Structure formats: C-alpha cells, structure tokens
Deep mutational scan, measured.
Amino acid sequence: SGVNQQQLQQLMDMGFTREHAMEALLNTSTMEQATEYLLTHP
C-alpha cells in the first residue's frame, strides 16, 4: 500500500489510528516527520 508496515505499526503502538498513521506516512518521508505530522494534524 505504499507505506512501511513496521513504521505503521510503531505509530499505532503510540496510540494513533491506522488511518491517521497511514495519512502521516504518505505525507512525510521519515518516522520523525510522520510523528510530527500526527502531533500537528490531530
């Protein structure tokens, strides 16, 4: 699906929903950016 499943699982383990985590990974290129994205786009 174009996203790193390991990163997706890590974000879900942090408490984010699958949909939200996927959106973040699709819009960013690193785990750090994805986390930042999730925190700034709740």
Rank of each mutant, 00 (worst) to 15 (best):
S1R: 12
S1G: 12
S1N: 12
S1T: 12
S1H: 13
S1Q: 14
S1W: 05
S1D: 12
S1P: 13
G2Q: 12
G2A: 14
G2I: 13
G2E: 12
G2L: 13
G2F: 11
G2V: 14
G2D: 10
G2N: 13
G2K: 13
G2S: 13
V3H: 06
V3C: 10
V3E: 05
V3P: 08
V3L: 09
V3T: 08
V3Y: 08
V3A: 07
V3S: 06
V3G: 06
N4W: 08
N4R: 09
N4G: 06
N4E: 07
N4F: 12
N4L: 09
N4V: 09
N4P: 08
N4D: 12
N4H: 08
Q5N: 11
Q5H: 12
Q5T: 10
Q5V: 13
Q5P: 14
Q5K: 13
Q5G: 10
Q5S: 12
Q5W: 12
Q6V: 13
Q6N: 11
Q6I: 12
Q6L: 11
Q6K: 12
Q6P: 06
Q6S: 12
Q6D: 13
Q6T: 11
Q6W: 11
Q6R: 10
Q6G: 10
Q7R: 06
Q7V: 07
Q7A: 08
Q7D: 13
Q7Y: 15
Q7E: 11
Q7K: 07
Q7N: 14
Q7G: 06
Q7H: 15
Q7W: 15
L8S: 01
L8M: 06
L8F: 04
L8Q: 03
L8Y: 03
L8H: 03
L8R: 01
L8A: 03
L8E: 01
L8I: 07
Q9A: 11
Q9C: 14
Q9L: 10
Q9Y: 07
Q9E: 11
Q9G: 06
Q9N: 10
Q9K: 13
Q9R: 13
Q10H: 08
Q10L: 11
Q10P: 03
Q10E: 09
Q10I: 14
Q10Y: 12
Q10V: 13
Q10D: 07
Q10W: 08
Q10F: 13
L11F: 05
L11D: 00
L11A: 01
L11C: 02
L11Q: 00
L11G: 00
L11Y: 01
L11K: 00
M12E: 05
M12S: 03
M12T: 06
M12Y: 03
M12D: 00
M12V: 13
M12W: 01
D13Y: 06
D13V: 05
D13H: 08
D13A: 12
D13G: 10
D13K: 10
D13W: 05
D13Q: 09
D13S: 10
D13P: 00
D13M: 09
M14P: 01
M14A: 05
M14G: 04
M14Y: 07
M14E: 04
M14D: 04
M14Q: 05
M14T: 04
M14R: 05
G15R: 01
G15T: 01
G15P: 00
G15V: 00
G15Q: 03
G15W: 01
G15S: 03
G15E: 02
G15A: 03
F16Q: 02
F16G: 03
F16L: 01
F16T: 03
F16E: 03
F16N: 04
F16Y: 12
F16W: 08
F16M: 02
F16D: 01
F16K: 01
T17F: 08
T17Q: 14
T17L: 14
T17A: 15
T17D: 15
T17I: 11
T17G: 14
T17S: 14
T17N: 14
T17W: 07
R18M: 11
R18Y: 10
R18V: 07
R18P: 05
R18E: 08
R18G: 04
R18D: 04
R18A: 09
R18S: 06
E19L: 10
E19K: 10
E19V: 11
E19M: 11
E19D: 14
E19A: 13
E19Y: 12
H20Y: 09
H20V: 11
H20S: 11
H20D: 09
H20F: 13
H20R: 14
H20G: 05
H20T: 07
H20M: 15
H20K: 11
H20W: 11
H20C: 14
A21F: 01
A21Y: 00
A21P: 00
A21L: 02
A21R: 00
M22F: 08
M22Q: 08
M22K: 07
M22D: 02
M22G: 04
M22T: 14
M22I: 14
E23D: 07
E23V: 08
E23A: 07
E23Q: 09
E23M: 09
E23C: 11
E23P: 01
E23T: 09
E23I: 10
E23N: 07
E23H: 11
E23L: 08
E23W: 14
A24H: 01
A24R: 00
A24V: 02
A24Y: 01
A24E: 00
A24C: 03
A24P: 00
A24D: 00
L25Y: 04
L25A: 02
L25I: 07
L25D: 00
L25F: 04
L25M: 06
L25K: 00
L25E: 00
L25R: 01
L25Q: 02
L25C: 05
L25H: 01
L26D: 05
L26W: 05
L26N: 08
L26R: 10
L26C: 15
L26Q: 10
L26I: 11
L26P: 00
L26F: 07
N27A: 10
N27K: 12
N27D: 03
N27F: 08
N27Q: 07
N27T: 06
N27E: 05
N27M: 12
N27W: 06
N27V: 09
N27Y: 07
N27H: 13
T28V: 03
T28G: 03
T28I: 02
T28F: 07
T28R: 02
T28L: 02
T28W: 04
T28D: 01
T28A: 04
S29Y: 07
S29V: 08
S29P: 05
S29A: 11
S29N: 11
S29H: 11
S29F: 07
S29G: 07
T30H: 03
T30R: 02
T30M: 01
T30D: 07
T30W: 02
T30A: 02
T30P: 00
T30I: 01
T30Q: 02
T30E: 03
T30F: 02
M31S: 02
M31P: 03
M31N: 02
M31C: 08
M31R: 02
M31Y: 13
M31F: 15
M31V: 07
E32T: 05
E32Q: 09
E32F: 04
E32Y: 04
E32M: 05
E32D: 07
E32K: 07
E32P: 03
Q33T: 04
Q33W: 03
Q33S: 05
Q33A: 12
Q33Y: 03
Q33R: 04
Q33D: 12
A34V: 02
A34W: 02
A34Q: 01
A34G: 01
A34F: 02
T35W: 15
T35H: 14
T35M: 15
T35Y: 15
T35N: 05
T35V: 15
T35G: 04
T35E: 14
T35R: 14
T35D: 03
T35K: 15
E36Y: 05
E36P: 06
E36H: 06
E36S: 04
E36N: 06
E36A: 06
E36T: 04
E36D: 11
E36C: 15
Y37P: 09
Y37M: 05
Y37T: 08
Y37Q: 12
Y37H: 14
Y37N: 11
Y37E: 14
Y37F: 05
Y37D: 12
Y37R: 13
L38T: 02
L38G: 02
L38A: 05
L38N: 02
L38V: 04
L38W: 05
L38M: 04
L38H: 02
L38D: 03
L38I: 05
L38F: 04
L38P: 15
L39F: 13
L39K: 15
L39H: 14
L39A: 15
L39Q: 15
T40F: 08
T40H: 12
T40Q: 10
T40L: 08
T40E: 10
T40K: 09
T40S: 12
T40D: 13
T40M: 12
T40R: 06
H41V: 07
H41A: 06
H41G: 10
H41F: 12
H41R: 05
H41E: 10
P42T: 15
P42N: 15
P42G: 15
P42M: 15
P42R: 13
P42A: 15
P42Y: 15
P42H: 15
P42D: 14
P42Q: 15
P42F: 15
